Simulated scan of single mutants.
Amino acid sequence: MVQVWLALLGLMLTFGLMLAAQGAWRRSASRTVAAGSRSPAPASAAPAAHAADALPAIDGSTGTVALPALPIPPGAVLTDSGVSAARPFLWGPANAIDRARAMQCLTAAIYYEANGESIDGQRAVAQVVLNRARHPAFPGTVCGVVYQGVERAHCQFSFVCDGALARAPAVSGWARAARIAAAALSGGVFAPVGLATHYHTFAVAPPWNRAMVMTDMVGAHLFHRWKGYWGTAAAMNRTYRGGEVLPSLPVAGGTPAAASEMPVANALPVPPLPTASASPAAAPAPRDTRNTPPPVSASGAVISERLARSGEILDKWKDSGRPIERPDGPRPAMPGAAPVTDQRR
């Protein structure tokens, strides 16, 4: 019996030594990787290619892209500083076409990504789009951000590639999204989400959320920004230059269609920006009723002109409201009434 216990004790000691050695090896490997990740990128490094194409947007989340392999400026703050509000959007050298297209693309993103959200939830989605337009890891236009990856079927916003654009938008929901887009493009900032460039719903857990800093929860969405320098306001220093382009979008049947041909563009008008002066509506011209034909009822019969005029009663209805005569007595005479006879009608 003693020999059996000694054998078991020896096996337990051997197993413990193996686990300790394995843990020490893992800690050494992690320190080596961490030390390598702190090495600065060379100044001549070009932006990373489409390394994140394997992670397109799934239902309820935005897609990810690779951080730019650009050198971090000397003296840049690399630590996280909590949540700071983004700067107001400025148009820069944008013409009327750029403004109209940016308005259309941002309205579509707000509507199809957050139509069921509150006003704050829709403002938060608009802020993410504008934050991306300033960041060097994303396109520099509003439409470029919204439709990024559509040519490779790796859309950054899921509504672009999942067939949502085939559904015509509701008038009331589209109008509300347009108002929120106009306010954001006119300089309105939704400060609670800060510098967030990503979001996802509670229903999904994308792998990138563990490598980012969550800035806020608004409605059904969780908003995130990058850690370190690439999640700071200093990294979002790109100025809007215009050049909005409406891309070709996939439609049912396999034939690409321009974004201006989608129902989101031609079914509902986009209101002007709040800063634009709206022309006053012309007063309606007075209606000439001298030669107007008499009105026609639903059955097609012409309504009498005397009946059409308010306050006048036809002769055959003048006795309405008079007490019904008793069958055993004479019908009382009323001034101005038709003569009464004993004949039953």
Rank of each mutant, 00 (worst) to 15 (best):
P40V: 00
R309T: 10
S304M: 04
V189E: 09
S158T: 09
G219A: 00
R179D: 14
R101W: 08
F159P: 06
F157V: 00
W208Q: 13
P68Y: 04
P247C: 05
P40I: 00
S248T: 08
P42R: 14
A96N: 11
R326D: 15
V171L: 14
T107W: 05
A94R: 14
A233H: 06
A182P: 03
A76T: 03
T197C: 03
L195M: 14
G231L: 03
L9S: 14
A108Q: 13
L90G: 13
S44I: 06
E113C: 06
L6G: 05
Q122G: 02
S172N: 15
V189F: 08
G144L: 06
A102P: 08
T239R: 15
Y229S: 01
A205Y: 10
D80H: 07
A175Q: 15
P71W: 02
R27V: 09
T32M: 10
R179G: 08
A301P: 06
T79N: 10
G254M: 06
R306S: 11
V77L: 10
T232L: 04
I303L: 15
S81T: 13
A337K: 06
C105E: 04
V125T: 07
V264R: 08
P294M: 09
L106G: 00
H154T: 15
A196R: 05
S260I: 12
R99T: 04
M262H: 05
R152W: 06
L106N: 02
A333K: 10
L106E: 01
G194E: 00
M214V: 03
T62M: 08
L78R: 15
P286R: 09
Q104W: 10
E305D: 09
G329Q: 15
V129K: 08
N95D: 15
V4H: 12
V150D: 05
D120T: 02
W174E: 01
L55V: 11
V160I: 06
